[in-house]
Computed example of a mutant assay.
Amino acid sequence: MFHYFFLSRCVKWDSTGGKSGSAFLKTLDDRFIIKELSRTELEAFVQFAPSYFEYFAEALFHGLPTVLGKIFGFYQIQVKNSIPGAKSYTLDVLIMENLFYHRKMTRIFDLKGSMRNRHVEQTGKENEVLLDENMVEYIYESPLFVRENNKKLLRTSLWNDTLFLAKVNVMDYSLVIGIDSEKNELVVGIIDFIRTFTWDKKLESWVKEKGLVGGTGVGKEPTVITPKQYKNRFRQAMDRYILMAPGPYYQGPPPWYYPAWVIRALFTT
């Protein structure tokens, strides 16, 4: 009954940053997000779900660090039209956590660790989603630092999660980073982890790698890579995007080198 209550009280949500074309809804209290699954995503999720919930149970009961987005339920909604001759339809939806519940974000990034077509023109609109190249531009001016313990926790979480996703043949996921300037905090979570490395992706990867169609060229990476390659690239990129704050024994730039909001995060308790 809990999820049915929220499903009946939600509104359409225009999510930016994604290319799947899926419909999104958000509960009126902003706590949950409902995503429509395509037929391909549905088939992938049916295969993926048992491993996902087993992994989350292990993380919960054994205290293993994870930043994998939480899925709370899966439902199939059948809408029957009472008008004679009118078509009925079915929706397959996931209920997921809203990472930014009760928060106002200054910047939001959707990161995959790739520089290929990962830039958008900034409009200044509220909650616009920026990509990897935008992140590189941003941290050049305002590096993102976290405390040593948080950096280790994030690194361990990403290591655990990407190892799991690679084992179950999942790729093309993203790390969402939200900058909460009011609280001097970063909010992170891995999303879009449904798509598996199916035979069509394997074929596309092989063709691109061999340069048979629109070759990768010198210095370019293939648009489709294996889950293992994706995992390694993802880990390396996220480690570069978020840096460890200097501790008491750090030999480096003086405190005034860093942005004001980073200084407050580093030297307040």
Rank of each mutant, 00 (worst) to 15 (best):
K70G: 02
E97H: 00
W261S: 10
R31A: 06
V146D: 00
F32R: 04
E121A: 06
I263K: 15
G189C: 01
K183S: 12
A237S: 15
V136F: 14
F267A: 08
I190R: 01
S205L: 04
P65F: 01
D92H: 14
D30G: 02
D110M: 01
F32A: 03
K12Q: 07
I33C: 01
Y230T: 02
V67Q: 04
K208Y: 11
K112Q: 07
W206C: 11
V168K: 08
S88A: 14
F24Q: 06
V146M: 02
R9K: 10
I108W: 11
P248K: 02
K87F: 13
E148D: 14
A245W: 00
H3E: 13
V218L: 10
A23V: 10
K35M: 02
E137R: 07
I34T: 04
A265R: 04
Y55D: 11
A86H: 10
L28C: 13
I77N: 00
A237N: 05
K151I: 09
A166G: 06
K125V: 10
V129P: 13
S15I: 13
L212P: 01
R155G: 02
R195V: 05
S174P: 04
L131G: 01
E121W: 08
R31I: 06
T216G: 14
P65T: 03
E41M: 09
K151S: 08
G69F: 05
P255E: 12
S114W: 03
V176I: 15
L42H: 13
K112A: 05
